[in-house]
Amino acid sequence: MSTAAPQTWDEFMEGVWRQNPVFVMVLGMCPTLAVTVSAINALSMGAATLFVLVCSCGLVSLMRAVTPKEVRIAVYIVIIATFVTAVDYAIQAISLALYDALGAFIQLIVVNCIILGRAEAHASKNTPLPAMINAAGMGVGFTLGLLALGVVREVLGAGSLFGVALFGAGFQPWVIMVLPPGGFFVLGAWLLFFAWLERRKLRRAASLTEAGQHV
């Protein structure tokens, strides 16, 4: 696998768009639905996951030659848990309020299937650089997905964006948006939107084969 620029870009964009963890693979739904009540929470959760993803995939890839098949999952989990712990400390150091807002979901990054999935499916079979690029793409895709939910939920649920009030004092907050059902509703709406986008693209590309398309 060469690391020529277009291919690297391709590798990166796979996670951002084509295989987007949130909207295409629908993975890691627990943090997606739980912490996206505001844009800043979504962004920091995404950033934390991105960091853990890139670092652990790099280390998994480095260790792939000395990792026997039988103990590989144990090795991956230890590596992932290490970086999660580091992120946990880092967030406490940056802002305790943020740490409280994200709650247990920082620690739960350990069991985020995106990370273990990347480590098993990609990083353990590639050299560190492509592995990290691929992981970064996934991480960025995850962050964008969280942000897409977080922005909608914060704008409607609190009338602000990144804490900046948008509508003035008379704004009617949509209480549901900061409650768990709001996460499901917004996610559903986004999935509907992306399905519609996909449909439109397919239809434009080949209007003949429309009948047999997958849903």
Partner: peptide
């Protein structure tokens, strides 16, 4: 196995 776990 033990070596790699130890290393990790």
């Amino acid at each position: 196995m033990i070596r790699s776990l130890g290393l990790v």
